[in-house]
Nucleic acid binder design. Sequence first.
DNA 1: AACATTATATCGATTACCGATATATCATCG
DNA 2: CGATGATATATCGGTAATCGATATAATGTT
Lengths: 123, 123
Amino acid sequence: MSKPGTPGDQEFDAQGFARGIHELLVLAALREGPRHGYQIALDVEAHSNGVFRFRHGTLYPILHRMEANGFIRGRWSSGAGRRKKVYSLTDLGRRHLSGETDRVEDILAGLMRMLRRAREVPA
Amino acid sequence: MSKPGTPGDQEFDAQGFARGIHELLVLAALREGPRHGYQIALDVEAHSNGVFRFRHGTLYPILHRMEANGFIRGRWSSGAGRRKKVYSLTDLGRRHLSGETDRVEDILAGLMRMLRRAREVPA
DNA sequence: AACATTATATCGATTACCGATATATCATCG
DNA sequence: CGATGATATATCGGTAATCGATATAATGTT
């Protein structure tokens, strides 16, 4: 139905859906330990079974924003070799994650209720 | 934490989260039968337990867009009284709903997996 | 030496959503 | 009967998140 990728086609891919969710995904990834940006993207993709992906035009602005907002802190790895900026959760970020996890789970429950309902209607 | 409503504060309310989801909500609501816009908004709010809401600055542009895309069809109620535009699903809309329901459920599953994982990590 | 991958970064364009504003009908209450 | 509030639709400007393209550079692979 209608060429995929057409502008305005609005195919509900994970990207469009993910609007506003990426920050939560970053927090969730960092919950398991400090990581640099590229690794966060790989982890999110792996742990979500490929459902969520970060384009690098999306990833780095988000990390910068979250650092500016105090949710994460980044430090350039001192070692030689390819430069990496390693991020870790701040206390604020940790608190934010737990609060927002609760809230998003409510939202997911609401959405699932809607979808289940739509599925059950006979025709 | 940080005044709610502050720009850039990004509190993950249902609104920000809902980006791209509203269309699916409209389709799901219309699955139960033809409805006019205002009623769709009330239904969505009720069936999602208040999690999802349409502001009217959001609702009508979405309906127009979806009609232009062929997912729904609207007809002005012929009867007298307050004018209402009653929308119903097209075949395309019905097919779109069932396909996107599957896909969104996968996304929800991926997201839940991430959240559950983040919750389970000791510290 | 050539190439792919890792790794970070920025910028312009797109677009969905929000808030405000506008219009009009109908019901209710004083 | 006039005011108010709920119903009902509509548009517009602004905001902000995301995308795609582009850039840089070190490292691994062939």
